[in-house]
Amino acid sequence: MREITFSLNHNGIFSLIGENGAGKTTLVRILSTQLMPTSGSASIDGLDVVTQASQIRENIAAVPQEARAVPWMTPLQTITSYLMYRGYTHSDSRAIARDTLRKLGMERIEEQKNRNLSGGQKRKVLVATILSSEAELIFLDEPSTGLDYLSRKELWSMFTSMKKERSIVLTTHYLEEAEELADTIGMLFQGKLAAFGTMHDLRKLMKYPYSIKVSAPDFELNNIAGKVIHLPDGLTQIFTFETEVFDIVNSLIPKKINFTVQEVSLNTIFENIVYGGKNND
């Protein structure tokens, strides 16, 4: 990784996106004090990740990529033991674990072996594990990878409930997940921070911040600034300025052509930044 500089405020979700090998996991592992950086510096609440790691660890929790709930343990045992690693007594840990599982509607599975749970339930156990702790900064490295849509939505609601009182660093391959959940997004490309900011900030990086999808295969712009792409499914996608949206929509309504208007998605922004503006330049 190189040339990565950013700072974050307390609370909310910061999502790191990027291709495989872009450096997301490396960055998260350095920040969560699991990996020693070879050079450079990083600090959390003014504490250096190299020299003051033990102080940082008082306040962080992490679910690493490919972390698995120990199969021979139950969710209750998983959470209890993790809280004990954080220094809680056994009785307190067990009480908090039960309470967390109850709050998350997972009390039915608390005594089942982790190996008997579904993939989504296993991930929920891991997220519940760190959710039960007092940590204010939480690192989640691709927690939803490989899960079906409903399981991901369940995790999303857990993340949303967490972000009110904590800061979450979330890496993901699902751009819609980052767009849906993140307050701030960092886009890594080839080890560099290619873009950073809120969705609003990222849209400002685009030449055309609005997208209109039109149900007409041969639609063309007439004297309106923008770019037209004829999609294979018969739709036409128009990228344009906010000021032009009104004119385009006004031209579509009399012709009774169906359309949708939205700000450009993170997918489009990502493609533009990472792949050099194929669709929106």
Binding site: R29, S32, T33, Q34, S54, R57, E58, I60, A61, A62, V63, P64, Q65, E66, A67, R68, V70, Y82, Y85, R86, G87, T129, I130, S133, F139
Partner: peptide, 10 residues
């Protein structure tokens, strides 16, 4: 990956 979770803890 339990050890990594423990490393990022007190």
């Amino acid at each position: 990956r339990l050890q990594d979770m423990v490393v990022s803890s007190p």
